[in-house]
Design a binder for these strands. Sequence first.
DNA 1: GTCTATAATCGGATAGAC
DNA 2: GTCTATCCGATTATAGAC
Lengths: 203, 203
Amino acid sequence: MNTATKPSLKERQFALRESAILDAVDALLSSKGFDLTTMDEVAQAVGISKASLYKHFDSKELLAAATMTRLLDRTLDKVAELAQQETPLENLKAVVAWSVREHLAGRMPTLPSTRSSIHEFMLRHQPYVSKLEQLTEILGAWIITAQEAGQINPQLPGEVVLYTIYARPCDPVIDFLKMGGAFTDDEIVAAIVTTCFNGLQPN
Amino acid sequence: MNTATKPSLKERQFALRESAILDAVDALLSSKGFDLTTMDEVAQAVGISKASLYKHFDSKELLAAATMTRLLDRTLDKVAELAQQETPLENLKAVVAWSVREHLAGRMPTLPSTRSSIHEFMLRHQPYVSKLEQLTEILGAWIITAQEAGQINPQLPGEVVLYTIYARPCDPVIDFLKMGGAFTDDEIVAAIVTTCFNGLQPN
DNA sequence: GTCTATAATCGGATAGAC
DNA sequence: GTCTATCCGATTATAGAC
């Protein structure tokens, strides 16, 4: 029955197209967000018909969920790569710097802002939620260690620190600074990382 | 010809209804944002028909623009009230605290995030732009003074400081902390103000 | 599984009576 | 100026041929 053999050509082509779709959605969600992105645009960006797109993803919500879940995969990869190379504080800074850079590169689909209609859907999407919990566990441990070492203000509740870090890639300041045109991407990354972690320092 | 007399009853009723419309839009934009708010909802919230709504505002964009412009009026009022009572740094903190509180109270229509379809429209809406410039001038002066006094890091470009302050009321952290339910509004305000201004302090 | 064509719905805006 | 009823374009989603 051949159930465990390597993928056929057709399967590989299918997976490749799926990846191309998600790349396109990355860019569209990053620049326009969920509500303003249409399935027609996605299909056109990939160069397939809308009907074919729906063969891959049953709804716009599921398509966005797959994209957001893949972002968490990338983030978990990045976090694993960083782990224990430096101090927890340096790791946290590196994650924020990386995520701001991803945003600037147009690969950061909007994190679930409370105001997007996709928000509630994501909270019920198991693959996303479970990976988010994984990530939270790792970052949470780094935060606690950094607080014990006095590198992050121990008086700040862990949730405040965590959310402050999670919110950085969707900080409007990034777009404002980018739009102004007076700063390079490196300068923007530095500004966000500096103001963020200075704000979390002990007094 | 009677052009400079006091407003008639009808005119006052009209102005009153207009104000009620803007109040409703404040709440809707604050909770759902521009794209997810429908004119039907606005009309229903006010208790009038959609056609009547369009007698007051010619388009959804103009309605949002009026709401956002009124927000700037409120902000300018607040700023005038604060002016010179305290140091520039304390004034800036008070403005951020006030705006976070407005957000939590549901009176903070989303500032133009780059991803909203209303964003470009606002940049071409003269009343809004000119009031935003007024506000920027005042806050900019406070920032420079605070930097000269060494209360805000003088190495940070003024634009970074200004945008960081402007972005606070739409910081996703506010919604995250509110949603978690573990913090009072006062604690949320304090967390935002502290992490924001610690981040702007000299090293 | 991919396409073209189309159904179904939603939301911004307006016509026309009062 | 306010209402009811309606138009019309845009958008999600699907039918059906190949």
